[in-house]
Measured scan of single mutants.
Amino acid sequence: SEFQINEQVLASWSDSRFYPAKVTAVNKDGTYTVKFYDGVVQTVKHIHVKA
């Protein structure tokens, strides 16, 4: 599913667990740039983002 900029989502971290994050960019290659609550910004594949 498509997510929008500033949408609150759950994004997987390197430990494969999902954490609350905010979408900061929707990228043309189908990835999302997300910002976790601790301030870390990461680009993740769409399969690693869920509502």
Rank of each mutant, 00 (worst) to 15 (best):
S1V: 14
E2M: 11
E2P: 09
E2C: 15
E2W: 08
E2L: 11
F3C: 08
F3H: 05
F3I: 08
Q4G: 08
Q4K: 11
I5T: 05
I5V: 13
I5K: 07
N6F: 09
N6M: 05
N6W: 09
N6H: 09
N6D: 12
E7W: 06
E7S: 06
E7L: 07
E7K: 01
E7H: 03
E7Y: 01
E7V: 05
E7I: 09
E7T: 08
Q8T: 13
Q8D: 14
Q8F: 12
Q8L: 14
V9E: 01
V9A: 01
L10E: 07
L10H: 06
L10D: 05
L10P: 00
L10G: 02
A11F: 02
A11T: 03
S12Q: 15
S12M: 15
S12C: 15
W13P: 09
W13F: 13
W13G: 14
W13K: 15
S14G: 15
S14K: 12
S14W: 09
S14M: 13
D15C: 09
D15V: 00
D15Q: 00
D15R: 00
D15T: 01
D15M: 00
D15I: 00
S16P: 04
S16L: 08
S16N: 14
S16M: 07
S16V: 07
R17F: 12
R17I: 14
R17L: 14
R17C: 15
R17S: 12
R17Q: 13
R17Y: 12
R17D: 13
R17N: 14
F18H: 05
F18E: 03
F18C: 13
Y19H: 06
Y19F: 11
Y19L: 13
Y19G: 04
Y19C: 12
P20Y: 06
A21P: 03
A21T: 04
A21D: 01
A21C: 04
K22Y: 13
V23M: 00
V23W: 00
T24C: 13
T24A: 06
T24D: 02
A25S: 10
A25G: 09
A25K: 10
A25M: 08
A25L: 06
V26Q: 04
V26F: 04
V26W: 04
N27H: 11
N27R: 05
K28I: 11
K28M: 11
K28Q: 12
K28A: 13
K28V: 10
K28P: 14
D29Q: 00
D29M: 00
D29Y: 00
G30H: 04
G30V: 02
G30C: 07
G30M: 04
T31I: 03
T31C: 06
T31G: 05
Y32M: 07
Y32R: 01
T33G: 05
T33F: 05
T33Q: 11
T33M: 07
T33K: 05
V34L: 04
V34R: 00
V34H: 00
V34C: 02
V34W: 00
V34Y: 01
K35Q: 15
F36I: 03
F36G: 01
Y37L: 13
Y37M: 12
D38F: 15
D38Q: 06
D38R: 04
D38K: 04
G39Q: 03
G39R: 02
G39W: 08
V40A: 12
V40F: 11
V40Q: 13
V40N: 12
V41E: 11
V41P: 04
V41Y: 09
V41A: 03
Q42Y: 08
Q42E: 09
Q42L: 12
T43R: 09
T43A: 06
T43V: 12
T43S: 06
V44G: 03
V44L: 09
V44H: 03
V44R: 04
K45M: 11
K45I: 10
K45Q: 13
K45S: 14
K45R: 10
H46W: 09
H46E: 13
H46L: 12
H46Q: 14
H46M: 12
H46F: 10
H46V: 12
I47P: 10
I47N: 12
I47A: 11
I47W: 10
I47L: 11
H48M: 14
H48I: 10
H48Q: 14
H48F: 13
H48L: 11
V49F: 04
V49K: 15
K50S: 08
K50L: 12
K50R: 12
A51W: 06
A51S: 11
A51D: 07
A51F: 07
A51V: 11
